[in-house]
């Protein structure tokens, strides 16, 4: 019963962070290059590995921001 008051909540804008990885990874034209290299790793490979970490950080931020609101 108590939960009923909370159902009319607004859309939480933090969720937009979770759309960014789809934009930055789904079109390889953005990152299919050899250079610049990082520690000898071509851009194509280190960019995607970096996106793993960035997406995890985004997800953690959204978790912290939304967990108390629902």
């Amino acid at each position: 019963m108590e939960a009923k008051n909370k159902t009319k909540k607004k859309f939480n804008y933090w969720y937009i962070l979770l759309i960014i990885p789809f934009i930055t990874t789904l079109w390889p034209g953005l990152y299919a290059f050899d250079h610049p290299r990082l520690f000898g790793i071509p851009f194509f490979y280190w960019y995607q590995l970096a996106m793993v970490i960035i997406t995890a950080i985004f997800t953690a931020i959204v978790y912290i921001k939304v967990k108390d609101t629902e």
């Binding site: 969720y15 979770l18 759309i19 990885p21 789809f22 990874t25 789904l26 995607q48 590995l49 996106m51 793993v52 997406t55 995890a56 985004f58 997800t59 959204v62 978790y63």
Partner: peptide, 14 residues
């Protein structure tokens, strides 16, 4: 396999 396993998690989070 890398972008594949990136995109799983925002999706399952929601």
């Amino acid at each position: 396999a890398v972008p594949y396993t990136i995109l799983i998690y925002p999706f399952i989070f929601v």
